[in-house]
Design a protein around this nucleic acid. Sequence first.
DNA 1: CGCTACACTTAGAAGTTTTTAA
DNA 2: TTAAAAACTTCTAAGTGTAGCG
Length: 596
Amino acid sequence: MKGARRGGEWNQWPGHWELGEDPGLPGPFSLQMNCWWEEERYPEGIKWKFLEHKGPVFAPPYEPLPENVKFYYDGKVMKLSTKAEEVATFFAKMLDHEYTTKEIFRKNFFKDWRKEMTSEEKSTITSLSKCDFTHMSQYFKAQSEARKQMSKEEKQKIKEENERLLKEYGYCVMDNHKERIANFKIEPPGLFRGRGNHPKMGMLKRRIMPEDIIINCSKDSKIPAPPPGHKWKEVRHDNKVTWLVSWTENIQGSIKYIMLNPSSRIKGEKDWQKYETARRLKKCVDKIRNQYREDWKSKEMKVRQRAVALYFIDKLALRAGNEKEEGETADTVGCCSLRVEHIKLHPELDGQEYVVEFDFLGKDSIRYYNKVPVEKRVFKNLQLFMENKQPEDDLFDRLNTSILNKHLQDLMEGLTAKVFRTYNASITLQQQLKELTNPDDNIPAKILSYNRANRAVAILCNHQRAPPKTFEKSMMNLQSKIDAKKEQLADARRELKSAKADAKVRRDEKSKKSVESKKKAVQRIEEQLMKLEVQATDREENKQIALGTSKLNYLDPRISVAWCKKWGIPIEKIYNKTQREKFAWAIDMAEEDYEF
DNA sequence: CGCTACACTTAGAAGTTTTTAA
DNA sequence: TTAAAAACTTCTAAGTGTAGCG
């Protein structure tokens, strides 16, 4: 029924103009679009000279439920006001999710929901447990089912509408380039879903209005028009920043931005720079390592703590660990914010000396669990840092990220804690590729090696994922496929054997040909079997590990490009279309002898 | 310094589309 | 032709790090 709701009438205000269709530039400029890396760079601080865009796409307005969809309170039908109903639908849509069973989620939701109610509603609805959203929930399930069952034509129509929206709002002109915008749609209202044990889960994320929006573009550009009857909060022309649109979100009070796609010049250049900084670290990392080993002996506690923390950041690729406001976010830590309760010291464990057992929640509340043998000096220092402390006390009480980064800045220009993660990730990939690639392997086996190298990095960086729900089942399916293939191979071999015997007796052309074709069949099946087995290994090893994050954010793409060129692997086997767009600069510049 | 505001990168989950194979 | 699985895209939360202020 209401399939094509995206981008409601709000964005169909009059006075539309085509962006980027005819920027009034001579031909060659469109060619420059995909090779910004050959252009001159801007001086420090200036991000652009010209910026023109059409502003954001707002969330579609709320459409009240049909009359026959009921909400029940205390067993009785209750008609809700539009505002209260909208918020109720947010909860109803999440009814199957574990979130809605959590005490904090329910409490936060109910508190914010009540704020949207009329005074009568408020006095009637006093307990969330008496609310029955099941009918609403069923309605939404039916809706999504109906969406799946839509005819080809209807689906096509929606697709076209999305394409139109993308064409119109999804691009901007920055200097001489037409660039893709990453997130041109404003986040719709809904219930806040934090990660892990977030104290604000379930709170109402309010609807963003044009009056909340700050537009950033150049003075001499066509300023985007707000929807009819509305005004922007502000229009500014700040070319020291890269964002096009910003607004303040109501849960944490933080600022959200609309920025460009990773394929854009402004993102790509920065990404390139990041890897260049990491390569500079490569040149001085030995010196830095010697330095912090010396500092373990310092008579200043502050220096010792700094040196041990840096050792963890370097060896274990831990994040810096900024302080966070208590009670505002989930309780997670990084290196500098580790507490005594997050590590256990084992003078001896499983035959190893001086083992540190880490157990803490990091970014996104992903658990970091690791047992690491460390040098005696580190171990002794940790014992010292933990003396006379409570479990909830800071391990590095004389240290924070600001102190650490200031020190790093002195060791190398542009050096911060996160550069170690980038450096160690990239150097590990390069090393592992060297070690694991077997020149005699075929392409699928080489790709398996690549994935294994990638996996080593993901493990280092602790990039985890929830095992796919269907993992066990799909693994079994694959195994039975392998078994079937094995039988097929045995059959093919038998046939080959008898064909050979036959040819020996008959000695004619026809039977020789038959032997040849049977040989080929055996070979083909062997290859297929091998491919399946490789696939099974790869998948099993990947069960709980996410490769994407490191590939996208930590691995110098030139290493991968060089590896592909060296071994004749098509780049498409390693990077999909989006990734190739993001790394276009690296694909263009890296030769097979590139060294990180 | 220590604080906050701001800008920008990094992150896994959820949703959607494409591919595979029965 | 269908359904399951895989691949890919979108979404937006959650980090890092710097600048500017008192």
